[in-house]
Amino acid sequence: MHSDTTGSWTPVALSADLPAGTVIPARISAGSIALWRSESGRLSASADRCPHRGMSLSHGFVRGEALSCIYHGWSYAQGGNCIRIPAHPGLTPPETIRARTFAVEEAGGVIWVAADETETKPPVLEGLTPLRSMTTDAGISAIETAAGTKASAEGLIEPAGGTLCLLVSARNDGQTLIHVLLKGETSPADRIAASREAESLRRAAEDLQKKGIAS
């Protein structure tokens, strides 16, 4: 998503889907990233490529405050610098061995990553509670048509007359990442219904996309 308001910030995941001590793959306009949270809860985003042999760091694992590559165990600190090479236990890795990192912000249960250097902050989404994330083969215009309304500058699509609110971001592989958010207080039954409503919207958007109506 590259609207004026969000700048280089992309909403990549929901906080609840990244517990402490885990790493997940995500995408921003700059490419694939490994998004991870240390055991003490600190968030980091690095290019999804180990500087050693190019393995995806999102296939790796988090131990303590470091992200380790699954291939040869090279470990990286939050700043992207290599702090441990298991095959050379006595070696302090040189400063030049580092994975590229990106700025991360977490607000209201949504994790945002910036594709480049920025002074801005991601948009604040007031009064919305995250429910789940999903991807779709449909583009944003197909989702807008299915929902009967346009996306706001922040990337929010609010179908009329419901609690549902979709935070959408287009990816460069043609898919769209949707974070399903809910307005106001909701019960588990409301949330299950909203989740199914979001699935229906996705089906409708993908139908439109397939028929080429929204392109």
Binding site: F61, R63, G73, P86, A87, G90
Partner: peptide, 15 residues
């Protein structure tokens, strides 16, 4: 199995 659940190899074991 979750790799992080395995014990971290120590320097002694590596040798």
């Amino acid at each position: 199995r979750l790799h992080e659940l395995k014990a971290e190899p120590t320097v002694e074991e590596s040798k």
